[in-house]
Nucleic acid binder design. Structure first.
Length: 298
DNA sequence: AACTCGGGGTA
DNA sequence: TACCCAGAGTT
């Protein structure tokens, strides 16, 4: 890397962080009275679910279960109902398992080291780094879909990052993270926020970008996405996932165990419905009683 | 490395 | 419609 490139990276960092001082959203999990548990809950809810949908669910969740111990002893059916339509309900299951592990292994306190966080159910590379930075203000390399896009454009000169996270991206993010705890945590929040508000996937607001003049993608003439041909979004209508979602929605609303005959009336393909139910039972999201009726786990 | 796993808002 | 969203776990 040339000295000029090193300088440019430093300017990108400082420009984004200064922008963040005036542009940061007022999110509840950033409030001064937040707890590490509140931060952890927010990060799990935000795994593939947009901020606007998480915010009300997060408020209700933290009111009902303000500590890991509270969630640990809750009926799982209540947990899955509170999760509602956030999507990927296995996350709710893992979040409760996570709370129980925190109680059992860490005396009810969210751990503050990366290995301990990574050992918790539902906590992967991103979430562990995010909790370290945002709950404890510790240096970590936080790379989510926003950061990947910001770095791909500003430093990599590409329209969008590759379909899957690469070692080169991790290395770049690691090299870019400031040395100090406070600075690294601030950079993590700022780079995510830029990706969420300005450097968006579609129609980026380059006119509002603090580092547009430094952006490698713009300097290259804003070339199109080189990976476009390899991207493929998963279908939704008629999929097993939709069938699972339909069953879960019914179980959430039902006060009593649900007869299979009722579920058949909700889905056009009985075999696919069977697969969906078997999958849900396998995942621990649903249970069958002696009369073959379905209900949420107690 | 490639899959699976929800659901809704937006263009 | 298609795309996108503060990813994790399994194969």
């Amino acid at each position: 890397m040339t000295a000029r490139e090193a300088t440019r990276r430093t300017e990108v960092r400082s420009g984004v962080v200064q922008w963040f001082d005036g542009a940061a959203r007022d999110l509840p999990w950033r409030a001064p009275d937040r707890t590490p548990w509140g931060v952890l809950v927010s990060e799990v809810m935000l795994q593939q679910t947009p901020v606007v949908r998480v915010e009300p669910a997060w408020r209700a969740w933290l009111e009902q279960w303000p500590t890991p111990a509270d969630l640990a002893r809750a009926p799982t059916a209540d947990v899955l109902r509170a999760w509602g339509r956030l999507g990927y309900p296995r996350r709710a299951l893992r979040l409760q398992e996570c709370a129980r592990a925190i109680v059992e292994l860490h005396d009810g306190v969210v751990p503050r080291t990366e290995p301990e966080l990574r050992d918790l159910p539902g906590i992967g590379e991103y979430t562990a780094a995010a909790v370290l930075a945002f709950a404890y203000g510790k240096r970590s390399v936080v790379v989510d879909t926003n950061v990947r896009r910001v770095l791909a454009r500003a430093v990599g000169g590409a329209a969008l990052p590759a379909p899957s996270y690469t070692a080169a991206e991790r290395a770049l993010a690691t090299a870019l993270a400031p040395d100090g705890d406070v600075e690294a945590a601030r950079w993590a929040a700022a780079s995510m926020e830029l990706g969420a508000l300005v450097c968006t996937a579609k129609a980026p607001k380059c006119g509002a970008c603090p580092v547009a003049g430094l952006c490698a993608w713009r300097r290259a003439g804003s070339p199109p996405d080189a990976h476009a041909a390899r991207r493929r979004t998963q279908a939704w209508a008629g999929t097993d996932r939709q069938a699972r979602g339909r069953v879960m929605a019914e179980l959430r609303h039902a006060a009593e165990p649900v007869d299979r005959a009722l579920l058949v009336s909700l889905w056009h393909d009985p075999q696919q419905l069977d697969r969906a139910i078997a999958g849900l039972v396998e995942d621990g999201l649903a249970e069958q009683d002696e009369a073959n009726r379905l209900h949420l786990p107690r």
